[in-house]
Simulated scan of single mutants.
Amino acid sequence: MGRGKIERIENSTNRQVTFSKRRAGIFKKAREIGVLCDAEVGVVIFSSVGKLYDYCSPKTTLPRILEKYQTNSGKILWDEKHKSLSAEIDRVKKENDNMQIELRHLKGEDLNSLQPKELIAIEEALQNGQTNVRDKQMDHWRMHRRNEKMLEDEHKLLAFRMHQQDVELSDGMRELEVGYHHGRDFAPQMLFSFRVQPSHPNLQEDK
């Protein structure tokens, strides 16, 4: 008896369950053919909601499989823009690898494979780096001393101004005290210096 007609599953739950089972089955078959037949296998599946599922043989990568596909089929999968971007990524990756190697050398690691000239260059680089670090430390020390001197001068100026204010305040208080006592001594003299002349005729003294 032959298989029934294959049609889209309308029920979303049943469709998702079937998708998960069939996807697992396809990946299982891909692994089996890769192991049994020493084949390079790559599988890419997108679900109905756009979720990506992929499988690739352990001994290769999906980009390598796609590159082989492009070479053998003659179909262009990437335009010049993507090729340029890929080349730039490879260049940056290579530079990063070289920088990691240089960093290990500067840390004194992996030096056995280096020639004497390369070791001399590393030694000079370390000496230059040490000199630059010392110069930078001296710059920070000078700046620190300059800031301390500025703070010290500001403190002295502030103390001098406060002293001036104290002196001026003391002088002002003394002037107020002198003026107050002088006023008290002068008031009785004013009272006895002037004699009241009666304006009524009967109150005048007999001559």
Rank of each mutant, 00 (worst) to 15 (best):
D79Q: 03
Q189L: 09
L191M: 08
Y53R: 00
E95L: 04
A159M: 15
K68V: 06
I101P: 03
K136P: 05
F192W: 08
G183R: 07
L191W: 07
T71Q: 11
G183W: 04
A121R: 13
E168L: 10
G25N: 15
N14V: 04
I45W: 01
H82T: 09
A125W: 09
L52S: 02
E175C: 09
I6M: 05
K156V: 15
D185E: 11
V43L: 06
E80R: 05
S86K: 10
D54A: 07
K81S: 04
K28G: 02
D139N: 15
F194Q: 12
D110L: 09
A39R: 09
L111R: 02
D38H: 10
S113Y: 10
Y53E: 03
V35P: 01
R134M: 15
R145Y: 05
Q204T: 13
E168W: 04
E40M: 09
T13M: 07
T71A: 08
A30Q: 03
D97H: 06
H163L: 11
R104I: 11
A125G: 09
F160W: 09
Y53H: 07
Q100F: 05
H105F: 02
N132M: 14
A187N: 09
L176I: 10
E154F: 08
P63E: 02
R91G: 00
V41Y: 01
V133G: 08
Y180L: 08
H182E: 12
E95G: 03
D153K: 11
G108R: 11
A30E: 00
I26W: 00
D54R: 05
I89N: 03
V133S: 15
T60Y: 01
N72A: 08
S57F: 02
Y53A: 02
V17A: 07
S170T: 13
I89H: 04
K207V: 12
E148Q: 15
V43G: 01
G183M: 08
E168Q: 10
V92F: 09
L103F: 08
Y180N: 06
K68S: 04
K94V: 01
S20T: 15
L158G: 07
Y69H: 05
E80D: 12
L52T: 04
L62C: 04
L119M: 11
L85K: 11
Y69T: 02
Q70A: 09
V44S: 00
R142K: 15
